[in-house]
Design a protein around this nucleic acid. Structure first.
Length: 274
DNA sequence: AGAATCACCTGTGAGC
DNA sequence: TGCTCACAGGTGATTC
C-alpha cells in the first residue's frame, strides 16, 4: 500500500482518534508482524500501561510515542490502523489489537501480513534499524541538490532504482517514482552517472512537488488504500503515468507504456522522457 | 556495488 | 463456471 503521502495521511487521521489513550492489553494473532522485542509476549509486556502522546513519521514509517516506549511501524503493502469500540465485530485479517482503558481499540489489519512493528525504549528508535537505514524525507532541508547529485552521479544503477532506495531519499515508492520521473522528463532506465546536474535538480524538485501535492490530496488510492478514518485518497486523479498504460500522454498524446524494470511495473512516456 | 531471485502473504482479475 | 497464472502503493536476505 502506502508511500510517504499515504503514511502521512494515516498519521494525521489516526492522531485525532487515539492521542491520550492508555493501553491495558494487547492481542497478537499473527506474531510475525512483531519484530522487536522478538517475542510477541515481551512486546505485549512493554506496551501495557503505556499512554500515547504523539505519532511521528520518518519516510514510510510511523512512530508511536508512548511514555517510555516508541513503537515503529511499517504498513508495507496493505497495512491499516483504525480505531473501533471493543464490541464492534472484528474484520478479517486483523492481526494486532491494542486495547485501551476507555473501551476502544487500535486495530492493525493487513491482508498480506507484511507489515512490521518494533518497540524500542524511548529515544532508542532512531539509533536502530530500521530507522537508521533511512535518508531524508524529500521535503527535508537536508535533501539538497549537492547531497542528491553526489549520490546519483557516481552510480551505474538506474535512476528509478536510486529513487526507490530509501537510504537515498525516504518515502518514494513505485507510484511516486514513476510520477516524479515523468514530471522531470527523465526515462526510468537512465543510469545515474549519465544524468546532468540540471536533470538531477529537475528530479529533486519533481519529487518534492509530487509528494507535497499527494499529501494535500490525502494520498493515492489505486486498490485498497484508505486512511485511518476509512477515507480514500484523491491523488489518483492527478497521476500522469502510473496505471495509465495505453492511455494518451497528457503532454504529447503518445500512448503511455508499461514495462518491467527491476521487478516492478514501470510506467513512462517514450516521447516526454529521455 | 549492484542485479537478480526468492521470501514473506492473500486476493483479484485476466485468460483459457 | 472454474482453473491457473501474473500481479499488487515494500523490503530484506541470499547468491552470483
Amino acid at each position: 500500500m502506502p508511500e510517504l503521502p499515504e503514511v502521512e495521511t494515516v498519521r494525521q487521521t489516526l492522531k485525532q482518534l487515539v492521542l491520550g489513550k492508555t493501553i491495558n492489553d494487547v492481542t497478537i494473532h499473527w506474531g510475525n508482524i512483531i519484530k522487536q522485542p522478538a517475542e510477541p509476549e515481551s512486546f505485549k509486556r512493554v506496551m501495557i500501561d503505556q499512554t500515547l502522546h504523539d505519532i511521528d513519521r520518518m519516510g514510510k514509517f510511523l512512530i508511536f510515542q508512548f511514555d517510555d516506549v516508541h513503537m515503529v511501524s511499517h504498513l508495507r503493502m496493505e497495512g491499516k490502523f483504525a480505531v473501533h469500540p471493543s464490541e464492534e465485530p472484528m474484520k478479517k485479517h486483523t492481526h494486532v489489537i491494542f486495547h485501551f482503558t476507555d473501551g476502544t481499540e487500535l486495530r492493525y489489519n493487513d491482508v498480506r501480513k507484511f507489515g512490521t512493528m518494533h518497540a524500542f525504549p524511548k529515544g532508542e528508535e532512531r539509533k536502530n534499524k530500521p530507522l537508521t537505514l533511512l535518508g531524508p524525507d524529500p521535503f527535508d532541508p537536508s535533501f539538497t541538490l549537492p547531497y542528491f547529485y553526489e549520490k546519483v552521479k557516481r552510480t551505474t544503477r538506474s535512476i528509478k532504482a536510486v529513487l526507490l532506495d530509501q537510504s537515498v531519499v525516504a518515502g518514494l515508492g513505485n507510484i511516486y517514482v514513476d510520477e516524479t520521473l515523468f514530471r522531470a522528463g527523465v526515462h526510468p532506465e537512465r543510469r545515474g552517472k549519465e544524468l546532468a546536474e540540471a536533470q538531477v535538480e529537475a528530479i529533486r524538485i519533481a519529487a518534492i512537488e509530487t509528494i507535497n501535492e499527494a499529501i494535500q490530496q490525502g494520498g493515492t488510492t489505486i486498490r485498497t488504500y484508505v486512511n485511518s478514518q476509512g477515507q480514500i485518497g484523491m491523488f489518483q486523479q492527478k497521476l500522469y503515468v502510473y496505471g495509465k498504460e495505453n492511455e494518451a500522454c497528457q503532454q504529447c498524446g503518445t500512448l503511455i507504456e508499461k514495462m518491467k524494470h527491476g521487478g516492478r511495473g514501470t510506467h513512462y512516456c517514450r516521447t516526454c522522457q529521455h
